[in-house]
Protein backbone atom coordinates (compact mmCIF):
# COMPACT_ATOMS: atom_id res chain seq x y z
CA UNK A 1 0.00 0.00 0.00
CA UNK A 2 1.26 3.44 -0.88
CA UNK A 3 1.17 5.98 1.89
CA UNK A 4 0.81 9.50 0.57
CA UNK A 5 1.91 12.51 2.54
CA UNK A 6 -0.92 15.01 2.75
CA UNK A 7 1.04 18.21 2.16
CA UNK A 8 0.14 21.64 0.86
CA UNK A 9 -2.48 24.20 1.64
CA UNK A 10 -5.04 22.61 -0.71
CA UNK A 11 -5.52 25.76 -2.74
CA UNK A 12 -4.54 23.93 -5.93
CA UNK A 13 -8.01 23.20 -7.28
CA UNK A 14 -9.43 26.54 -6.19
CA UNK A 15 -6.66 28.48 -7.94
CA UNK A 16 -6.80 26.27 -11.02
CA UNK A 17 -10.50 27.08 -11.28
CA UNK A 18 -10.02 30.78 -10.44
CA UNK A 19 -7.38 31.07 -13.16
CA UNK A 20 -9.89 29.78 -15.72
CA UNK A 21 -12.86 31.82 -14.49
CA UNK A 22 -10.85 35.07 -14.45
CA UNK A 23 -9.44 34.22 -17.89
CA UNK A 24 -12.96 33.78 -19.26
CA UNK A 25 -14.11 37.10 -17.76
CA UNK A 26 -11.12 38.86 -19.35
CA UNK A 27 -11.61 37.15 -22.72
CA UNK A 28 -15.27 38.24 -22.91
CA UNK A 29 -14.39 41.79 -21.84
CA UNK A 30 -11.56 41.94 -24.41
CA UNK A 31 -13.81 40.97 -27.31
CA UNK A 32 -16.50 43.39 -26.07
CA UNK A 33 -14.04 46.30 -25.80
CA UNK A 34 -12.37 45.61 -29.16
CA UNK A 35 -15.81 45.75 -30.81
CA UNK A 36 -16.75 48.93 -28.89
CA UNK A 37 -13.48 50.70 -29.73
CA UNK A 38 -13.51 49.70 -33.40
CA UNK A 39 -17.10 50.97 -33.70
CA UNK A 40 -16.33 54.39 -32.17
CA UNK A 41 -17.60 57.27 -34.31
CA UNK A 42 -14.12 58.81 -34.31
CA UNK A 43 -10.68 57.66 -33.18
CA UNK A 44 -10.06 60.58 -30.82
CA UNK A 45 -9.82 61.29 -27.14
CA UNK A 46 -13.36 62.72 -26.83
CA UNK A 47 -14.93 59.50 -28.17
CA UNK A 48 -12.65 57.38 -25.94
CA UNK A 49 -13.68 59.41 -22.91
CA UNK A 50 -17.39 59.03 -23.70
CA UNK A 51 -16.94 55.28 -24.11
CA UNK A 52 -15.12 54.87 -20.79
CA UNK A 53 -17.60 57.11 -18.95
CA UNK A 54 -20.50 54.75 -19.62
CA UNK A 55 -21.59 53.18 -16.34
CA UNK A 56 -21.65 49.65 -17.77
CA UNK A 57 -18.19 50.07 -19.30
CA UNK A 58 -16.89 51.34 -15.95
CA UNK A 59 -18.39 48.39 -14.12
CA UNK A 60 -17.09 45.90 -16.71
CA UNK A 61 -13.66 47.53 -16.77
CA UNK A 62 -13.32 47.35 -13.01
CA UNK A 63 -14.41 43.71 -13.09
CA UNK A 64 -11.80 43.10 -15.79
CA UNK A 65 -9.14 44.78 -13.65
CA UNK A 66 -10.00 42.65 -10.61
CA UNK A 67 -10.00 39.48 -12.74
CA UNK A 68 -6.65 40.53 -14.21
CA UNK A 69 -5.05 41.14 -10.82
CA UNK A 70 -6.28 37.87 -9.34
CA UNK A 71 -5.11 36.06 -12.50
CA UNK A 72 -1.73 37.78 -12.27
CA UNK A 73 -1.45 36.86 -8.59
CA UNK A 74 -1.95 33.14 -9.27
CA UNK A 75 0.37 33.19 -12.30
CA UNK A 76 3.18 35.18 -10.72
CA UNK A 77 2.96 33.21 -7.47
CA UNK A 78 3.36 29.99 -9.48
CA UNK A 79 6.47 31.45 -11.09
CA UNK A 80 7.99 32.36 -7.71
CA UNK A 81 7.19 28.84 -6.48
CA UNK A 82 8.85 27.32 -9.56
CA UNK A 83 12.08 29.30 -9.52
CA UNK A 84 12.66 30.74 -6.05
CA UNK A 85 13.61 28.11 -3.49
CA UNK A 86 14.70 30.02 -0.33
CA UNK A 87 11.55 30.39 1.71
CA UNK A 88 12.28 33.87 3.07
CA UNK A 89 13.00 35.34 -0.37
CA UNK A 90 9.90 33.66 -1.76
CA UNK A 91 7.75 35.04 1.04
CA UNK A 92 9.03 38.57 0.44
CA UNK A 93 8.33 38.25 -3.29
CA UNK A 94 4.82 36.92 -2.61
CA UNK A 95 4.03 39.81 -0.28
CA UNK A 96 5.48 42.40 -2.69
CA UNK A 97 3.47 40.94 -5.58
CA UNK A 98 0.26 41.01 -3.53
CA UNK A 99 0.82 44.56 -2.32
CA UNK A 100 1.56 45.77 -5.85
CA UNK A 101 -1.61 44.14 -7.23
CA UNK A 102 -3.84 45.49 -4.45
CA UNK A 103 -2.35 48.94 -5.09
CA UNK A 104 -3.03 48.62 -8.83
CA UNK A 105 -6.67 47.76 -8.07
CA UNK A 106 -7.06 50.99 -6.07
CA UNK A 107 -5.29 52.96 -8.80
CA UNK A 108 -7.61 51.64 -11.53
CA UNK A 109 -10.66 52.37 -9.36
CA UNK A 110 -9.63 56.03 -8.96
CA UNK A 111 -9.01 56.38 -12.72
CA UNK A 112 -12.42 54.94 -13.58
CA UNK A 113 -14.52 56.78 -10.99
CA UNK A 114 -12.85 60.12 -11.56
CA UNK A 115 -14.62 60.17 -14.93
Amino acid sequence: MVKRLAVGAHYGLRDWLAQRVTATVMAIYTVYMVVRVLSLPAFDNAAWRVLMSGSFTKFASFLFALALFYHAWVGVRDIWMDYVKPLSVRLILHVMTLLALVGYAGWVATILWRL
Binding site: N45, W48, R49, Y104, V108, L115
Partner: peptide
Protein backbone atom coordinates in the same frame (compact mmCIF):
# COMPACT_ATOMS: atom_id res chain seq x y z
CA UNK B 1 1.25 46.81 -15.55
CA UNK B 2 2.29 50.13 -13.93
CA UNK B 3 3.15 51.57 -17.36
CA UNK B 4 -0.13 50.38 -18.83
CA UNK B 5 -2.24 51.70 -15.93
CA UNK B 6 -0.39 55.04 -15.97
CA UNK B 7 -0.99 55.45 -19.72
CA UNK B 8 -4.63 54.39 -19.31
CA UNK B 9 -5.10 56.94 -16.51
CA UNK B 10 -3.37 59.74 -18.40
CA UNK B 11 -5.47 59.08 -21.51
CA UNK B 12 -8.56 59.73 -19.37
CA UNK B 13 -7.09 62.45 -17.17
Amino acid sequence: LPVLIALFGASLG
